[in-house]
Simulated scan of single mutants.
Amino acid sequence: MSALGCDSRFIARWSGRFLNERLAGMYARHPGRAPEQPPAKLEARVLNRTLKHKPSDGSTHWSSYILAAVLGDVSVSAVQRIWRKHGIKPQRLERHMVFNDPDFETKAADLIGLYLNPPAHAAVLRG
C-alpha cells in the first residue's frame, strides 16, 4: 500500500466496489478538478510562444521541456499534445540564423569559392 501511496481505506473502498459491481464499478465517482485555464487560452499561449518567440537559453528551437519550463504552468505532455494537434514541429521551422563571428563573411566567401572553383586534384568535403 505504501508503494502505491494510498491507505487501507482507499484499498477497502475500491475492493468493495469491485466485489459488488465487478469491472463496472471501477470508475472514479468524482470527475476531478476543472482545468486552471480554459483549453483554448492554454493552446493560444503555447502557440504564441512557440511561433513568435525564440528560446532565451540560446537554443536554436523550442523543445517541449524548455517551453513547459518557461511557461511554468503547462505540462510537457500538454505542449506535445498541442503541437501534435496543430502539426507544429519547432525543429523544422525556418528561421534566420545569425552568426557572431566577425570573419564569417570572409570564411563564407572562401568556402563558396572552393565549391565554385575547386583546385585541381582536390576533394571538397563538408562536415
Rank of each mutant, 00 (worst) to 15 (best):
2 S>W: 12
18 F>K: 00
17 R>Q: 07
59 S>T: 07
91 Q>C: 11
126 R>G: 06
78 A>F: 10
65 Y>I: 13
109 A>Q: 12
22 R>F: 09
89 K>P: 08
47 L>K: 00
10 F>C: 07
40 A>L: 04
124 V>W: 05
14 W>L: 02
115 Y>V: 09
3 A>S: 12
31 P>V: 08
42 L>F: 03
68 A>V: 00
66 I>T: 15
112 I>W: 07
31 P>K: 04
40 A>H: 02
110 D>R: 12
10 F>L: 11
90 P>L: 00
8 S>Q: 09
83 W>T: 04
6 C>T: 07
117 N>T: 15
4 L>H: 08
53 H>N: 12
99 F>N: 14
81 R>N: 08
73 D>N: 08
65 Y>S: 14
29 R>I: 10
64 S>A: 15
109 A>R: 13
94 E>S: 13
37 Q>D: 13
21 E>C: 02
43 E>K: 01
5 G>M: 01
44 A>C: 03
6 C>E: 07
19 L>C: 11
40 A>N: 02
62 W>K: 01
17 R>K: 06
71 L>G: 01
11 I>D: 06
63 S>E: 04
12 A>Y: 05
114 L>S: 01
80 Q>W: 02
80 Q>M: 07
11 I>Q: 04
72 G>Q: 03
59 S>H: 09
73 D>L: 01
15 S>F: 10
107 K>A: 06
101 D>Q: 09
88 I>F: 06
26 M>E: 03
27 Y>G: 07
39 P>C: 04
12 A>D: 08
106 T>I: 08
58 G>C: 05
86 H>P: 06
93 L>N: 01
98 V>T: 13
17 R>T: 00
52 K>H: 15
106 T>M: 05
21 E>G: 00
40 A>S: 05
55 P>Y: 00
6 C>N: 05
83 W>Q: 05
11 I>L: 13
1 M>K: 03
106 T>H: 10
98 V>G: 10
83 W>Y: 06
101 D>S: 08
27 Y>S: 09
126 R>K: 13
30 H>N: 07
2 S>N: 11
39 P>L: 08
35 P>R: 03
3 A>M: 10
60 T>Q: 12
123 A>L: 15
100 N>H: 08
31 P>M: 05
87 G>Q: 03
37 Q>R: 15
104 F>G: 05
107 K>I: 05
52 K>Y: 15
8 S>F: 10
94 E>T: 13
20 N>M: 12
82 I>G: 01
124 V>Q: 07
34 A>M: 10
39 P>K: 00
61 H>N: 06
48 N>G: 09
78 A>Q: 15
28 A>D: 07
108 A>I: 08
72 G>T: 02
23 L>A: 11
59 S>M: 10
101 D>C: 07
115 Y>F: 14
33 R>N: 02
33 R>V: 03
5 G>Q: 00
44 A>G: 03
45 R>D: 07
127 G>N: 14
50 T>Q: 01
75 S>C: 04
72 G>S: 01
55 P>R: 00
79 V>N: 00
115 Y>Q: 11
88 I>L: 14
92 R>S: 12
9 R>P: 00
114 L>N: 04
10 F>K: 04
75 S>R: 05
65 Y>T: 15
